[in-house]
């Protein structure tokens, strides 16, 4: 189609709200990390909710890293790698993609929304894309609200303790059929 005069504009950085999501990012050294550097050199401005962890290749991203980040209180995880076919190590990003597809299903089963864990292909020249993706993701996760897994762990721990206390109390106050029966004596040899 012939062009109109519009330029695609990236969504504006999210307005200041009381609660800010925390996003952990795993960027591959050759493409995405370099692109983030380029965004910096170009003085592009984007949301500060993101914390980047540098890896050599997106293929190094273990699903455990993602889950650990979420378990420790991250509201979202962003993984950045090279475009398919461009991986500095030939195929690492494909392996990442495979794992990611499987992980997505698992996250779905856990009730973690899809927008919280995102895989993006960002090449070394795409500083603008880093800005756009970060802003977009922060905006989306902000709308979804706090994921709060550590808090949930605490709650569940308290629940378990509460139930355990209840059961212990019951067992102490009234002997009932559910009390453990006496072990029969073992026949001696």
């Amino acid at each position: 189609m012939s062009s109109t005069t519009t330029k695609p504009t990236s969504p504006p950085a999210p307005a200041v709200v009381p609660w800010q999501p925390r996003i952990v990012a795993f960027f591959c050294n050759w493409c995405t990390y370099t692109a983030a550097d380029l965004a910096g050199v170009s003085r592009l401005k984007y949301a500060s909710n993101i914390r980047v962890i540098r890896l050599m290749c997106s293929g190094r991203v273990d699903p455990q890293f993602i889950l650990d980040a979420l378990a420790r209180g991250a509201d979202g995880v962003l993984i950045g790698g090279c475009h398919p076919g461009d991986c500095h190590y030939a195929e690492g990003n494909y392996k990442m993609l495979r794992r990611f597809q499987m992980l997505k299903r698992m996250l779905n089963d856990l009730g973690i929304e899809e927008q919280r864990v995102r895989l993006e292909w960002i090449s070394a020249a795409e500083g603008e894309k880093v800005k756009r993706v970060v802003n977009e993701m922060v905006g989306q996760v902000q709308k979804l609200g706090r994921l709060g897994i550590p808090q949930k762990f605490e709650e569940w721990d308290k629940e378990m303790e509460h139930f355990a206390a209840q059961v212990a109390e019951k067992a102490a106050t009234s002997p009932c059929a559910c009390a453990a029966p006496e072990q029969p004596a073992l026949a001696t040899a």
Binding site: I53, M56, R60, V61, D62, F65, A69, H88, Y89, R99
Partner: peptide
């Protein structure tokens, strides 16, 4: 040093210098 095998090993028997699991978990 791409680390793909490190992330794929089901028993965690491959490690990567400079990008050890411990190091990355500690960053997280």
């Amino acid at each position: 040093g791409c680390g793909t095998c490190v992330a794929s090993c089901p028993s965690g028997s491959i490690a990567q210098r400079l990008f050890e699991d411990d190091e990355i978990f500690s960053e997280i």
